[in-house]
Design a protein around this nucleic acid. Structure first.
Lengths: 218, 218, 218, 218
DNA sequence: AATGAATGAGTATTCATTCAT
DNA sequence: GATGAATGAATACTCATTCAT
């Protein structure tokens, strides 16, 4: 049996007597379940079923629902950090770099709604898990560094004004993008305007790009 | 006085044989419990205890946990809408008006964390309750109108550029302020910088004010 | 206000400050509710609502759910006994009298399904209420006497054989008629033949009439 | 040995880690509880205790109280059908065959009061469970067929008259026997004559045998 | 006589977790 | 490493009944 078919087998059902695949399968199922229903709403039973595994295996590998949640959170953070690390802005002029940063944030959240849900859920629980997660704490977001560098380059170049705090800018951008998707359903309902359509997202992207670039002008 | 303490006052000494007080007391207790633990995490038992009422009374007056949640959500929305309606920007020049809007948003969320929690929780549940709430749907946010008017006045005056969509600006401001408090704990942990201190809030306030005002320049 | 319009008022809503009407209204509602759902399934709340009365009034007038049930049972028995007393078989030849008895039983049960339900329910509870009901115990069924007389007349006349026990015959007739309506739904489902249609009832009537008359021949 | 005692044996000493025994034990306990108190009156707690099992196991194996009730009903039907299938009337002359049928019905109901209770209860609930039970619907009662054959043989032989509908005769016999035991307590109380004594049953048996045989004469 | 408010004890059901194999 | 069986503690919700006016 070739390697590729083994992968196929893993991807399909689950390979019996293949601990790593089993564990990975449970983690993947957990991430889906937690993202869909939050820590409180998620059911261990459901996670086991999704993973085509036994419920007891969940405990065997992860100890408790809470630990599993932390593992799922870690994996989610690891993933976005990996994507962030792929960002290479060094060759771009400051304004283009800033646009790329905004686009990255917007697109990632647009495509990874489960990250939004987990972030919101984690905050609802007072950041309890993040605070005890080496992954989240030690693996710093490269984004903050990228913003700092870009701001500095722009300031030197005269494109951006001085005195802008990178973390505060990071929070602003994250807030503008996060809130859009996090509260999209509520706002669509309240304002009677569908914000989930692609054109709406695209228009909003233009809005925050120009607001930010203008906002940073000296 | 923050909302939480207002709620507390209502929730305390309850008069027996005073149906309105009882109902108000249960609602107040529910708002606290839902704000603290979300829909899934909240316990009807706990709400009854907080309200110094009998558990059955909760059902007598509100029918079900879900209906109670909707009532709590409605009350929360009613309250912020009432505050929003008190905002009078007509006498202010456009830039000052915009600052006041931002300050209102920031301060309200800073003092009413329970609103943040309920908003996040409601989104986690797919805006299910908001969609069936006449209160949330029919009582439109005056903020959107205020932003539209201010933008228009600023445009006429030459302070603000044209073509800014009021709803998109509303979302940006709401996002920047909401995210700061919603994710404050997580970000403080991750970035090792306490964002909950008053000075940090004040600094962030200056940041979004200047970002927005500059961002709206023609 | 004329008497007739008062009756109308009573029949419609319920006359406030009219204790007898109120009590009658509650009893009527109770009979409907108990007949529909049995002692266990009936809800005091529902009875009060049906009677357009207050729940507390139910207790004021009847003391407890159980006492109310007994009152409803008594009323039900009183009603059928009254109908039975109206039966006059003296002028009929024995065979015709027997047919009339069978028809009475069949028709009464067909038209008063609530009697069937209450009888079945009471048996399910081990005849607990009947045993303590003066009404049920003291007001003997005239039917037994009528059967005895008819049997005797038939025996003298030579139409019926001797030695038939009136009570046993009463039980047979009651059983054949009761079971038909009591288990009609179950049997219709199991045998795939609708026994609730009028023609089916009519055909069954002919069957038990001829079975009984033939069965009593010398 | 009556069914009740058979059930009791099963329900007693339960082997741990013996799923089939556990499930059987719960079902046996459920049959007793439902037969004694009906669907509404039965308590899941009590069933678990009777089965010496954990309450959650009831749900683990049967899903809900209603499903458990259906399972109990199915088991009850399966049992009587099995007994019915054991009846072999082919060697008997028509009249003897008919007597055997009547005796079977009377004896089975006399010894399996729980069947009476479940049948009555199911009718009280509008045959809801029977209608969705494959067991009850598909496993036809062999009794109907036996009656039809016996009637036919008797007709050929000249013992029975023609034109008797087998289902109607089935209903009559079932009614006469069922009602006797179902309403025995009530009637004993009302008529002041103990119908539960063996001699009373025996006398009633003779009555319905002669009523039926005579009733079927040509 | 009439009513709304309040309560305690239950009732089906759920869920994370552990046991035994 | 893997699995089905078993459990205790909750959890939302119900219901007959009583209290206060």
């Amino acid at each position: 049996m070739s390697l590729s078919s083994e992968i196929l087998v893993e991807a399909q059902g689950r390979n019996r007597r293949n601990p790593e695949a089993t564990k990975a399968s449970i983690l993947a199922a957990a991430r889906m379940e937690f993202a869909a229903k939050g820590l409180d709403g998620a059911r261990v039973d459901q996670i086991a079923k999704r993973a085509k595994a036994n419920k007891q295996l969940v405990y065997y590998y992860f100890g408790s629902k809470d630990s599993l949640y932390k593992a799922a959170l870690d994996a989610t953070y690891a993933e976005i950090r990996a994507r962030e690390r792929e960002l290479d802005l060094s060759a771009l002029p400051p304004r283009d770099a800033m646009v790329k940063l905004i686009d990255f944030s917007l697109n990632y959240l647009n495509q990874h709604r489960e990250f939004i849900r987990m972030l919101a859920d984690e905050n609802a629980h007072g950041a309890r898990h993040v605070r005890s997660s080496d992954m989240a704490l030690e693996t710093n977001s490269p984004l903050l560094e990228l913003i700092a560098e870009t701001l500095e380059r722009g300031e030197v170049e005269g494109t951006f004004r001085a005195g802008v705090d990178p973390l505060e800018l990071y929070v602003s951008i994250a807030g503008m993008t996060f809130f859009y998707f996090a509260n999209g359903l509520t706002m669509s309902a309240i304002f009677g305007r569908d914000l989930t359509r692609d054109e709406a997202v695209s228009s909003y992207r233009d809005h925050i790009v120009s607001l930010t670039l203008n906002g940073l002008r000296p």
